[in-house]
Design a protein around this nucleic acid. Structure first.
Length: 576
RNA sequence: GUUCUUGUAGCUCAGUUGGAUAGAGCGUACGCCUCCGACGCGUAAGGCCAAGGGUUCGAUUCCCUUCAAGAACACCA
């Protein structure tokens, strides 16, 4: 779509200039008094302060110039200095009939880090937001012309793996992997994803109660990180099993990663990173550990130093994170790196970002952006748990919602009922997940995901499919729709005004790394269209110009729906 | 304890350079299919924007205080 606000804002800036007022950017807003106009300009009040004049006077001067422009149907001024503008139908019509605007390709690479799956642990509902937000942002970046690389950054080399391997060694001491003298090749062992998912929580809770066990796990983690023969080979086997199961779920979530790298990949850059850091003389000893001081003058909260090496020589989360940045800069030279994780990790990323900047691992103009999101809580406001205390697996959630969608599916649809419910379920989950503001915590409620009416994914899908069906019917009847000839009433006019917001919504979403403006916009657009649809009988309309205009309008809304749903990674089924 | 975040309709939540009359979905109560797909559309009820103070033409928004909830605070990830 083309940029409507830009036109409007330029007109105002020029008009003000004519009256000898300078303004950087004339910000125009959609009117919150639709009875007075389509758009409003509030800048006269600010200019009044600068020029020490009455805001009404400035507003009147501006209105006087704008009134001469046939772009506007009406321009009025309200106290203490609001300028209200209505756009002429002719201007709206010629704007919608313009050719599509395409965002030019930019020579700027944005690296997106999201997903955050952990090896040997099943993806649970806590992983949902990261995948949904990250994937949508990746697609948004692409639509706006940026180049992207996405990486799930697997948790694959820390203590959880130490715990799993330790527990396996207790249960299956006879495995050749645990024989120090054995040199391979290894015979097949019965590791399945189910086994791993059972072993990890068991080992994790045991480590909490048993200090000796925890100590053993720490040792095992160290042995793994030291690439000890046997242990490392078993780890490779675990990776293979776990990765394929993770990929399957991400596929169902319509989420794509260019890279499935992880802590273990970054780990190989650690020696290089450490050598580099040592040269800079910013690594200090502290209580036996090695740290980087990242405090800054005006910190209100005391930021603890970033821990680089543990006192036992092992590496930590922050270490691999820093090494990951080092690796990414070296191999890909991104202009920006975006992180989509739970906002509770904010401090951790502050430390790492500061360390990266202090150590000049990033260029001075590289942007590291932490797009933290709210925690998913249960109905009780505490981090979400199922009734038996576990966290709900993502796969179970998908299946449950899918079952619910299948129940609601139109009986007349005979083919592909499974696939269609899968698509609808995806829309339910994604839409519900992306509609709250990114930063607010939200309550996970399975019933919320089973509600298929109102402001939901299926609402948008249903409207879209109905439009498609209408357009197909028109084509079957030999009707063509190439342009908008006229505005018939307030129903189609309102849609045109909403369409004008398209580009600023996308840009706002990009600037704030947040999708709720897009979900909200989709609802608003479709709600407005459905009202229009309800009030006008398009195919039976006798006025041919009206009919073509309405079909054309339908085709535009249909197109926008397709673009935005694709950005949100929601699939549109054929029927529903 | 220190620091940060949050508090908006019965419930779940929108609401940014401070703007006019604070919005939506669900739920509740009424309506709308002989006509393009009713998973749709409409109407109504529902609010001291946590409380108090300040800044100014103007505050849900900025500042201060209080209350309430949550989070983070080096050898976990």
């Amino acid at each position: 779509m083309k940029k409507f606000y830009k036109i409007l804002e330029e007109k105002i800036a020029i008009a003000l200039n004519k009256k000898n007022y300078e303004i950087d950017k004339a910000v125009v807003l959609e009117s919150n008094r639709p009875d007075l106009g389509d758009y409003q300009f509030n800048g006269a009040m600010n200019l009044a302060k600068i020029y020490h004049k009455n805001p009404l006077e400035i507003a009147n001067e501006l209105a006087e110039v704008l009134k001469q422009d046939s772009f506007f149907k009406e321009v009025s001024v309200a106290s203490p200095g609001f300028v209200n503008m209505s756009i002429s139908d002719e201007a709206l019509i010629s704007f919608i009939n313009l050719d599509d605007y395409e965002y030019p390709q930019k020579n700027e690479l944005i690296f997106l880090d999201y997903g955050g799956a952990n090896v040997a642990k099943s993806l649970h509902v806590g992983h949902l937001r990261s995948a949904n937000i990250g994937e949508a942002l990746r697609r948004l970046c692409n639509y706006l012309g940026y180049q992207t690389i996405s990486d799930t950054h697997l948790g694959d080399f820390g203590r959880p793996l130490g715990l799993v391997i330790l527990e396996l060694s207790k249960r299956y001491p006879q495995w050749q992997y645990f024989n120090n003298d054995y040199c391979g090749p290894y015979e097949d062992v019965p590791i399945t994803n189910e086994l791993l998912e059972e072993v990890y929580p068991y080992a994790s809770s045991k480590a909490k109660e048993d200090d000796n066990y925890l100590k053993e796990a720490q040792e095992m983690t160290k042995r793994l990180q030291d690439h000890e023969k046997g242990i490392y080979d078993l780890w490779l086997k675990i990776m293979e099993v776990s990765k394929s199961s993770i990929k399957k779920i991400y596929e169902r979530l319509n989420t794509h990663f260019d890279l499935y790298k992880g802590e273990s990949d970054a780990e190989s850059y650690v020696p290089e990173l450490l050598a580099y850091l040592n040269k800079l003389d910013i690594v200090k000893d502290s209580e036996g550990a090695k740290v980087i001081d990242v405090r800054e003058e005006d910190d209100k909260l005391e930021i603890p130093p970033m821990l680089l090496i543990k006192s036992d020589g092992g590496i930590l989360y922050s270490t691999t994170e820093l090494a990951t940045i080092y690796e990414r800069m070296k191999n890909y030279h991104p202009h920006q790196i975006w992180y989509m994780t739970d906002k509770r990790q904010s401090l951790h990323f502050t430390q790492v970002f500061r360390a990266a900047s202090k150590a000049r691992i990033i260029d001075s103009n590289t942007k590291l952006i932490f797009a933290g999101f709210g925690t998913m809580n249960g109905k009780d406001g505490k981090p979400f748990k199922t009734r038996d205390g576990g966290v709900m697996r993502l796969e179970d959630l998908l299946n449950d919602v899918k079952k619910e969608c299948l129940k609601h599916l139109n009986e007349n649809i005979i083919d592909n009922r499974e696939d269609i419910s899968e698509d609808i379920a995806l829309s339910v989950i994604k839409y519900a997940d992306m509609i709250p503001n990114r930063e607010t915590d939200y309550n996970f409620d399975i019933e919320k995901f089973c509600d298929l009416e109102g402001k939901t994914g299926p609402y948008i899908l249903y409207s879209t499919i109905r439009m498609k069906s209408l357009l197909n019917k028109a084509l079957e009847n030999g009707l063509k729709y190439n342009k908008l000839h006229l505005i018939a009433n307030n129903f189609d006019r309102e849609i045109l005004l909403i369409l004008n917001n398209f580009d600023i919504i996308l840009e706002k979403a990009f600037d704030s790394q947040s999708l709720n403006d897009i979900t909200e916009y989709l609802y608003r657009l479709n709600n407005s269209y459905n009202r229009f649809y309800n009030e006008n009988h398009i195919l039976t309309e006798s006025d041919e110009l009206k009919k073509e205009s309405w079909l054309y309008l339908t085709s535009i809304v249909y197109k926008i729906n397709n673009i935005l749903l694709d950005i949100l990674a929601i699939k549109i089924p054929e029927k529903m």
